[in-house]
Design a binder for these strands. Structure first.
Length: 221
DNA sequence: TCGTGATCATCC
DNA sequence: GGATGATCACGA
């Protein structure tokens, strides 16, 4: 699938997907539909990337760098409530002195997001889930303030060597949680005495209350 | 191993 | 029932 040349073109393409089941979309690309997502957790997101012409790859960049747009699928229930938190980016755990919010990956990724709601409960087979109306979103001043506050607090704790004491309960809208292949995947971080330690890689996630509110704000308009 | 795409499984 | 901590697959 070619890359959309503009934001309106991207939005149009996304709108044309609304109403389709994931099975219908997958079949149009000749992609097999998994029975469940236990071993294909990224299947929905990758299918939508393909359909919308996002750049594949694992670079810490937006999905459409030339458009300044990040693509996120978000599973919602029948009432429009997110079923999961939303992964944003991996958290830097070393060499973070002087890192500012303005230059952070979190802010960069969230500066403009194309949300694609995917309707369905966990009990619903992936192929039966329905693509919803897309939403092109940028944080309001208030939303950005909340994000910034949480990010700065969490990064402060990391820089203090407290990474192992940060739980997902920190932060109002943004949280830090493990982001790893398994419990043996370790990465370098800084301990309480400033010494190097090995710990689970962490990622920033948007809490469901935050994404629920931004979706609700949109769909009530 | 890291960063991408995330959801699973269990606890509270 | 919802959130936390753990985990799955893949490409580079």
């Amino acid at each position: 699938m070619s890359r959309p040349a503009s934001i309106p073109a991207l939005l149009l393409r996304a709108e044309q997907l609304a109403g389709l089941s994931l099975r219908e979309l997958a079949q149009s690309f000749d992609i097999p539909v998994p029975t469940d997502l236990r071993r294909d957790k990224g299947w929905v997101g990758q299918l939508l990337e393909l359909a919308l012409g996002a750049s594949a790859g694992s670079k810490p960049e937006q999905d459409f760098p030339e458009l300044g747009v990040e693509l996120k699928s978000i599973p919602i229930d029948g009432r429009g409530k997110p079923l999961e938190t939303t992964f944003v980016s991996v958290a830097p755990l070393t060499d973070i002195g002087g890192l500012r919010w303005e230059d952070s990956n979190v802010r960069n990724k969230l500066s403009r997001v194309l949300w694609i709601p995917v309707l369905g409960e966990r009990s619903l087979a992936p192929g039966d889930r329905i693509i919803g109306q897309p939403l092109l979103w940028s944080p309001s001043e208030q939303e950005e303030q909340l994000l910034r506050q949480d990010w700065e607090e969490i990064m402060e704790l990391i820089s203090l060597g407290e990474v192992q004491n940060i739980s997902a309960r920190h932060g109002q809208v943004l949280q830090l949680r493990p982001k790893a292949a398994n419990g043996r995947a370790l990465t370098e971080a800084v301990g309480r005495q400033g010494q190097p330690i090995m710990t689970l890689p962490r990622g920033f996630y948007l809490k469901t209350g935050f994404t629920a509110a931004l979706l609700a704000r949109h769909f009530m308009l």
